[in-house]
Amino acid sequence: MSSWDDEDTASAAATTDVELLKRAWRNEKAAPEILRFDSPLVSRAREQIQLLEETLEDFTDNGVDDLVVSLYQMDLDRALFLLRSYLRLRLQKIEKYMIHISKSDDLMSRLSLQEQRFAKSCTEIMEKHLEQSVLSKLPYGYDSVTRQSLSSTEDDMVPEPQLDTFVFCKTKSDVGAFQLDDIGEEIVDLVADDLYVLRYKSIKGLVENGRIDLI
């Protein structure tokens, strides 16, 4: 039955870095919150891209067949698209949840150094802007960036990702009986290659340790 499924063989041989990057890109796209940045993977991908860019220059200098050059160019474009899309996607998420992310050390640690810098300066600029344009004109008690008023018990003006949203996911290998809630009333049996729609929050751990792919 699974002999029909090309995905099976493709994921088994998923050793190339573009393949890994593609997985990271898909997970990042489908996950509501920001995931851990895979620095080694991204720098490996960058290196390969750079190497190919140099090779392509040599090719044109040495008069290699146009066909071959154009094929390598396509390969390069595809890798570049993935990398760019992945990085942009993360910047979009960071912009959206910047205050929420800057508040938490755990979330901050998921970002690359450049992203951390971006998140910090973005938050500063946004706070300054809100301060100058609106908050400074509001009465005492209503002038916080993060809270509606003094009576708020928590930061209720900070956009947060909705972790209990539903996501589509595909299992790579057997996970077995998996508990979705805290008290064990909701259990699903995750078998290899199953496709489920589940709450992100409950399978978060499986996404993080790579046992399940978001699609």
């Binding site: 979705l180 809630d181 909701e186 699903v188 496709l195 489920y196 729609v197 589940l198 709450r199 699609i215």
Partner: peptide, 26 residues
């Protein structure tokens, strides 16, 4: 409904039902 099993649904099919499915469940 807290989990929907859609074994063998394909990539494009997932992509098309996603908004409906997610909003409904939500």
């Amino acid at each position: 409904t807290h989990a929907v099993k859609l074994k063998n649904l394909s990539a494009m099919e997932v992509n098309i039902v996603r908004p409906f499915m997610v909003r409904t469940l939500q």
